[in-house]
């Protein structure tokens, strides 16, 4: 049965992937600039009952992967960028005794019409929330993206550009997340207006409407198992970053509804890059999520060491402050991202 599922999924998911490979291959033969990077994620989690497992960190899994970024240039400059980031991952908590999976994170091509005007096609982040301002691809602490959108990447079309003092993004996507699927009118429309990245104080305002599909397990292949009914999501959100150098604060809040039922969420994260020990970062995060049928407050603390050579070694304690101590987990994570070969 799983093999049949996988074989049905292969044509749709692989068509896009193969198209991108063709573009990347053409780009290489055209002498475009490219960077190939390898990625490795190894983690183990320990629950309050003392059992160690090879998962326990939400979107992070044990994985080996790569990222291939290509830029095509002409006489008038760069006009096309393509990125493919994929992992072979292992998560014993996946359904149907299929712990191994292919995860496609980025798989997009972007055309530049001019400075500050870019259109994107493929699998990329929706234009919503703090996730657009923080890179959480290799980190244990995450944003509210999973709660607000249901996933961190989706298939579709997008635009990003500059408008006066602000950056503007908008996207129209399938609402299916990592797997490529359309059913029950699934769709995701999102937009975000923000101050440019890299400033000491950054602010973003976002909105989304979607009918998104819920799947068991974060994977592209084998095909995820989707719930038959889409969830109608409406959100508005604000996010902010304040970076003083050694100390950085990140916050976001979002309000809206899931299938007509109100939801409200907020997140606050403080990071301290220990002075004189550039490689050491301490982080603490509080997250509150409220629905009509209950609330949940999660706390997390993480220490990360970057010894160089592309490695990040992290240890985090993640817990549910509104539940019991049984929800507390300790997660150890070794993450590598570096140029290859």
């Amino acid at each position: 049965m799983p093999d049949r599922e996988a074989s049905r999924a292969a044509p749709s998911a692989l068509r896009g992937l193969l198209s991108l490979v063709v573009v990347l291959g053409s780009a290489c033969s055209a002498g475009a600039g490219s960077v190939f990077s390898a990625e490795l994620s190894a983690l183990a989690g320990r629950s309050a009952d003392g059992a160690w497992t090879l998962n326990g960190a939400g979107t992070q899994t044990n994985a080996v992967g790569f990222e291939y970024l290509v830029r095509l240039s002409g006489e008038r400059g760069d006009y096309l960028t393509a990125d493919l980031q994929a992992r072979a991952s292992y998560d014993p908590a996946r359904p149907e005794r299929e712990p191994w999976a292919i995860e496609i994170h980025n798989a997009w091509i972007e055309h530049r019409f001019g400075l500050g005007r870019n259109a994107r096609l493929g699998h990329f982040e929706p234009a919503f929330g703090l996730e657009r301002a923080l890179d959480t691809h290799g980190t244990l602490l995450q944003t509210l993206a999973e709660r607000n959108v249901g996933f961190k990447h989706d298939w579709g079309l997008g635009y990003r550009g500059t408008t006066g003092a602000f950056d503007l993004e908008a996207s129209a996507q399938t609402g299916s997340g990592m797997g490529l699927e359309r059913r029950d009118g699934s769709v995701l429309l999102s937009s975000r207006l923000s101050t440019p990245p890299g400033t000491a104080v950054g602010v973003g305002v976002s909105a989304l409407y979607g009918r998104t599909l819920t799947s068991m397990g974060m994977r592209t292949l084998p095909r995820p198992i989707f719930d038959p009914d889409a969830v109608e999501r409406r959100r508005i959100g604000v996010d902010a970053l304040w970076n003083t150098g050694a100390v950085a604060l990140a916050a976001e809040a979002a309000a809206g509804s899931n299938d007509g039922r109100s939801v409200l969420g907020a997140l606050l994260r403080a990071s301290w890059q220990v002075p004189a020990l550039d490689a050491l970062t301490l982080e603490a995060q509080a997250e509150h999520w409220s629905r009509e049928d209950g609330t949940r407050t999660s706390l997390g603390a993480c220490v990360s060491l970057r010894p160089g050579d592309g490695w990040t070694l992290s240890a985090a304690v993640l817990g549910d402050a509104s539940g019991d101590a049984g929800d507390t987990r300790v997660v150890l994570h070794a993450y590598y991202y570096g140029r290859f070969p």
Partner: peptide
Amino acid sequence: VVLAALALARPASCA
């Protein structure tokens, strides 16, 4: 597999 990959991974700096 993961441990082998860790052992074989070529140390390199950020991309």
